[in-house]
Amino acid sequence: MVKTGLIKFLKNPPKVLTGKNIGLLCHQASILPDLTPAWVALKALFPQGLKILFSPQHGLLGEKQANMIESADTIEPETELPVISLYGPRFAPEPEHLAEIDILLVDLQDVGTRVYTYIWTLLLTMEACAKAGVKVIVLDRPNPIAGNIEGPLLEEGLFSFVGLAPLPMRHGLTIGELAFYFKQKFSLDLELEVVPMEGWTRDMFFPETGLPWVSPSPNMPRFETALVYPGQVLLEGTNLSEGRGTTLPFEIFGAPWLKVLALKKFFSKISEIKVQAINFVPWFDKWAGRICQGIKLWVKRPQTYQPVKTTLLMLKEVLAQNPEFSFRRPPYEYTWSKCPFDIIVGKEKMREALNNQNEEQILALLEEGVKEFQEEIEALKLYA
């Protein structure tokens, strides 16, 4: 079984923490293999030292839905520690919060996709800690979809809370490696330490880790969800249901008007995936209460599956066959004027390429800048 940074930290806590005041940025997936929450284990280890918890989007226990549904500050009942929300009234710790601590621990389960907001909470928190002189220790966790990288690379004009640095959609890094990347990219004057995992390699998918999958957010219930998410999250920028309001978000998609048989022919050409035509009724979100004609995705070969490329080429087919299709209008993740699809996909020209049925341009935009990104991060990798 892979040993996470949390496991290693608890076994050999750094002596530098003795007598220090500690904060913890965490959520419901911050657990030990026996499902003990990180804050409970750390409170037992540092009964006087652990002072405050910070939670990202969705709240400490993952109770909030996505996209501008904010969490309030609260009290964690078992430890009676204050929980400061970093999604809502603020997006980074405030000076008065950091004044209470000397060291901030970070234990977050990312899903390997640029638009998953926990990594941007990490960045904003690192910036706040740099200003406050608070040391950051990241307890590393697996990238559940391995170390594969897939574009598009986010362009600066489309920065938002689903992308504040030029990462590709599937970034291929662990959250500890991302912390090193952010420190280097933004020249942060920050004391940063990463507690690396033991036993994780870049070709490893989450089931191979031996760790329990705890949903890191309400619409990421399974590892299989994470596999398709880098592509299917693009549907949030359209009037297609990405499966929110069902038990299989992102693994299914559709709309009342979707021509499913034509899409089945498209997917039949992709050897890494198989599909099933289905009907579904979302309980909430897009097309709530309406019967949607849809597709269920089954990834057969995750090692070679390219989720972003697959979804983009699928959208090209949808545009060609369904006049009812449209791109979503703002707002989206606190961005009030830019097209949601653009800030999700990361390339302004991608929507134009889809509208023009220009597959050559779609594929070129997917690769633009990715090689340079791979060269940039090579020295930051902690794992083979």
Score class of each variant (00 low, 15 high):
239 N>W: 05
203 D>W: 09
299 V>M: 05
242 E>V: 00
303 Q>V: 07
275 V>M: 04
209 T>S: 07
203 D>G: 14
240 L>P: 02
269 K>R: 14
229 Y>N: 10
187 S>I: 04
244 R>C: 01
301 R>A: 11
275 V>H: 04
234 L>Q: 01
194 V>Y: 01
235 L>P: 00
207 P>Y: 09
219 N>R: 06
219 N>P: 04
261 L>M: 13
216 P>T: 06
230 P>G: 08
210 G>N: 09
230 P>S: 05
197 M>G: 09
309 K>L: 07
305 Y>N: 11
241 S>E: 10
241 S>R: 08
261 L>E: 15
209 T>W: 01
200 W>M: 14
298 W>A: 05
187 S>Q: 13
266 F>C: 13
254 G>Q: 10
289 G>N: 13
257 W>Q: 03
200 W>V: 03
275 V>A: 05
276 Q>F: 11
217 S>W: 06
225 T>Q: 06
255 A>M: 07
233 V>S: 12
209 T>V: 10
198 E>W: 04
208 E>G: 09
211 L>D: 11
296 K>H: 11
301 R>N: 15
240 L>G: 02
202 R>E: 13
198 E>C: 05
255 A>L: 04
294 G>K: 00
226 A>R: 02
277 A>P: 06
229 Y>S: 10
205 F>T: 04
221 P>Q: 04
188 L>V: 11
237 G>F: 00
244 R>H: 08
261 L>K: 15
190 L>A: 07
235 L>R: 01
250 F>L: 07
218 P>M: 10
284 F>R: 14
290 R>L: 14
258 L>T: 00
278 I>P: 08
224 E>F: 03
309 K>A: 00
188 L>H: 14
192 L>T: 11
187 S>E: 12
252 I>R: 04
233 V>I: 15
227 L>T: 04
196 P>T: 05
289 G>F: 08
199 G>I: 07
301 R>H: 12
190 L>H: 08
210 G>E: 02
188 L>M: 15
254 G>V: 03
234 L>F: 06
265 K>M: 07
277 A>D: 06
